[in-house]
């Protein structure tokens, strides 16, 4: 059985900007352990000589010609923005850089 520490759960949560309660940390820690245990099980399969597979789709390049098309208008682009001003998306102040 894989074992993921409380610190690791907190780290992953922090990377995803999730604010977890203590019971949630325990709950998700357990679930993550189950997932990792499943991956351990997969790792028992011998994959020698088999190339890495990131996708099961057909392996061919899909490319687009470099021809511009109109996208959205400024008004359309900002329509779902929680806040907008003078054509910009408005976000909470970015501290530092």
């Amino acid at each position: 059985m894989a074992s993921i520490s409380n610190n690791e759960v907190e780290h992953v949560a922090q990377l995803a900007r999730l604010d977890l309660t203590e019971p949630e940390k325990t709950l998700f820690g357990e679930q993550l352990n189950q997932i990792l245990t499943f991956v351990e099980q997969l790792q028992e399969v011998s994959t020698e000589g088999i190339p890495l597979t990131a996708s099961v789709a057909e392996q061919k390049s899909v490319l687009r010609e470099d021809l511009p098309h109109d996208g959205l208008s400024q008004e359309q682009a900002l329509r779902n923005a929680p806040e907008a001003n003078e054509g910009f998306f408005v976000v909470p102040k970015i501290i530092g850089k």
């Binding site: 390049s61 899909v62 490319l63 687009r64 010609e65 470099d66 098309h69 996208g71 959205l72 208008s73 400024q74 682009a77 900002l78 003078e86 054509g87 910009f88 998306f89």
Partner: peptide, 23 residues
């Protein structure tokens, strides 16, 4: 002007899919 050269793909709107530029 800001946000006038945009579309669902570069705005990251759900359901949009990237297609690579050959050039």
């Amino acid at each position: 002007p800001p946000n006038t050269q945009v579309c669902p793909v570069c705005l990251g709107l759900p359901g949009s899919l990237p297609v690579l530029n050959q050039r």
